[in-house]
Write a protein that binds this DNA or RNA. Structure first.
Lengths: 196, 196, 196, 196
DNA sequence: TATGAATGAGCGTTCATTCAT
DNA sequence: CATGAATGAACGCTCATTCAT
């Protein structure tokens, strides 16, 4: 049970950290804020994480892993590529709708060159789920043969944009609908005329 | 001439600031670095800008305005919507290919809630150029009737992704090609009927 | 038996503390180190000693008393003053040969003005043994009539120097020999008359 | 003149530091205390010294060098060995009569193993002056052939004792007199009887 | 006007002490 | 009684900002 308690407190810290880091950039986050958000003393954080940077890194990993495992459920479902991507976008945006800052977690972060490689590795699972959805779409002849890595980056770039720039009147489903529509059909008109 | 000198020095500071802010997040940038990059004394910066935040804001405005005026050239050219968007993406990525950090300038930045509105207003010109290209495309019946504001956000999100995640082996033209191809035609296959 | 147990644990703490305090200055000693050296929990120390300073003080007293009782044996023995001082130096240096830090215990320590008086009182027994040896020497007309208090301070100062600056190639007996020789005969040559 | 100003401020800091470090052990000295003793802001100290440890080391060097150069004057004077040692003791004790803590500067300080070697090297000049006085005494047949290194350590150990344990009623000259008397003639009686 | 030395508020981190188990 | 997880006061160091020159 001590084990459980420890796990619990570490998780409480990570949850608090993910809330606080989500709201402000690294250097504006005070360890004190995280401690008080977690409802614990500042020193306690240092029982679980050696430095502020370690905590930041652990938080990114925590958040990304949580998201990745949810995304993998989606990925395993039987559905068309478009439906899968729709589910992915909905899930990511739903999770971060009110926390615009955390998304930088999924961006390159050159602040910590030493962690850069590791962060990119952690971003992989999410990128991979998108890539797999695209590849499955290509195999099922729903998608044409685009580069899946670049396609996934483009897709996630659109998701990030929707996260950063949605206004209070925007509805999640609408934005996802537009996003999927552009990603799948493109903005261009069908070339019907040319068949005439 | 004094006027000119002043202008010149202010510009020198803004140029230095745009280089330095482009390389690191706000809080890691030292006023000293900007001063020495500009080849002037640290105190001089405070003759032109009241605080570090003011300088940051002025730098964003400076960079965005420079880019916006270049983009407006593109916008006025006679070309298909796809070509215009291609030129826009090429211009933005070319300008920031080696400076991954500056792009956050075009993102919402909740660090300065007081400046938020102003920053969004400054981002407008760029967004507008993209929106106009899309609207022109719709008018010319090259594009279908998508929401131009959302379409522009999606487009810029893809551009941002290419900026953040390109590797050293990626070539600018290829990435732009893929981006335009996805944005215009989508990832989906043409509807079967037309092959009949 | 509970009494014995308590005594035992208190002694275990004091022994651990004397080892740890001997190795580093007060502020670099962690209560944790003492606890783990004693093989007990950190909280336990606080059952026996109110604060770190109290423990430090008790440790000095403990060490000094242990040394003093050994020195008193020497003092009671029937021997020349020179032999007694030799035995005293040998005993002190032997005990601290490998622990250069504990000797500050025998120095004035202005860190704790409140304890200063008490510490000086605790240092007394050692000083007294040396003083008594000197006084006995004077009485036995082996020594001339020097001030015994100052003489004892000078003697202990030499002992301290040998402790602080001996190198790995120095042998204890040699250093003690030189020390006694200087203290008893001085560095000066015998007065010429005796050569006549 | 800027050069002079800089020198002046650095010296002011070193002087303040030597006062403050002389009064308390390293870990009890606050950078703030040194700054306010020097009458400057805390940050200023960091313009001249990288860390607290660097400042400590520089202070030791500063004090020792100041003392060493004074001592070398003594050393070059034409006088008997006893007179030279008397002058040395008077000079050291006079300088530290009211600052008991600084003497640890001349002791081994295992706190900074990295600096240990360097500190011992800095202590050299002082030790050397004493050694040279002893060697000169031997050559002039005022002293017998004792080991000069050990003799110098013993001598400085006595000086240190006088510094640490003098009381308010002690007079400097008396203590120095006793010290020299013991070091030169020893505590032992002349062996007159045996000449009889 | 331009400079850069000086400043001190502010934050990450440590560790003696407490107290629930 | 014994423990060690939790605590927060305290301090070294940084860096935006000021101001004497």
């Amino acid at each position: 049970m001590a084990r459980l308690k420890t796990q619990t407190k570490e998780l409480a810290i990570l949850d608090a950290a993910s809330r606080v880091f989500a709201a402000r950039p690294f250097h504006e986050v005070l360890i004190d804020s995280i401690a008080s958000d977690a409802g614990i003393g500042k020193g306690t954080i240092y029982r679980y994480f050696e430095t502020k940077e370690d905590l930041y890194f652990a938080t990114v990993v925590h958040v990304v892993e949580g998201l990745a495992s949810e995304l993998e459920q989606v990925s395993r479902a039987e559905a068309s590529a478009a439906r899968k991507l729709e589910a992915i976008a909905t899930l990511i945006l739903g999770r971060f709708w009110e926390r615009r800052y955390l998304l930088p977690f999924f961006q390159r972060d050159e602040r910590f060159p030493a962690l850069e490689v590791e962060l990119i590795k952690r971003r992989e699972p999410i990128l991979r789920v998108v890539q797999e959805a695209i590849l499955a779409g290509i195999e099922r002849r729903e998608f044409r043969g685009i580069d899946a890595r670049i396609g996934a980056d483009l897709f996630l770039g659109m998701v990030r944009s929707m996260n950063l720039f949605h206004t209070s009147s925007d509805r999640l489903e609408d934005l996802v609908g537009q996003l999927i529509s552009v990603f799948v059909q493109g903005a261009g008109r069908r070339a019907e005329p040319e068949t005439a």
